[in-house]
């Protein structure tokens, strides 16, 4: 697919990288001249996907998280968040609101938020191989 610009981030699954990842993607998205609301939605969806990779994908060790962003035609930001962790056995169940394997400090709303804040959302996963979240957000053209 034709694209105008792209960037790739790679970092270990440490929680201090959550703020870094969502801020870096927001900085990259700034060239599309997004509204405050659009930028907030992008930061939130990236935070959810990256936090999942950090919390769930590598429960007992550190692993690598990759975030890839592309700018597609018609002001579309394309975001892929990928890990090589434990994977998800049932992706439909995982996407259900309030489903969590995480206990009292998780709410099970991460995928629900990604789906509602992005214009396209796709979750794919293989047990023992890893998980990929693919999201797109079409941005309004201002001025």
């Amino acid at each position: 697919m034709k694209f105008d610009n792209y960037m790739v981030l790679q970092f270990p699954s440490k929680s201090c990288n959550e703020a870094f990842a969502r801020s870096a993607v927001a900085c990259f998205a700034a060239q599309l001249d997004p509204t405050m609301e659009e930028l907030g939605d992008i930061r939130t969806a990236v935070s959810e996907a990256v936090t999942n990779a950090i919390v769930h994908a590598y429960p007992d060790e550190l692993g690598t998280v990759t975030v890839r962003c592309r700018i597609l035609k018609d002001n579309v930001l394309d975001i892929v968040v990928k890990d090589k962790g434990i994977g998800i056995s049932d992706v439909e169940q995982a996407k259900r609101p309030m489903f969590t394997t995480g206990g009292a400090d998780r709410s099970g709303m991460g995928f629900t938020i990604m789906e509602s804040f992005m214009t396209a959302f796709e979750l794919s996963s293989e047990l023992g191989k890893g998980t990929t979240v693919h999201m797109r957000r079409k941005l309004s053209r201002r001025q």
């Binding site: 907030g40 930061r43 939130t44 935070s47 959810e48 936090t51 009292a104 400090d105 998780r106 709410s107 099970g108 709303m109 991460g110 938020i113």
Partner: peptide, 13 residues
């Protein structure tokens, strides 16, 4: 200035 689903858990707790 920012919350994600972890903030929801803070409120629910």
């Amino acid at each position: 200035s920012f919350v994600d689903s972890s903030g929801i858990a803070v409120v629910i707790n």
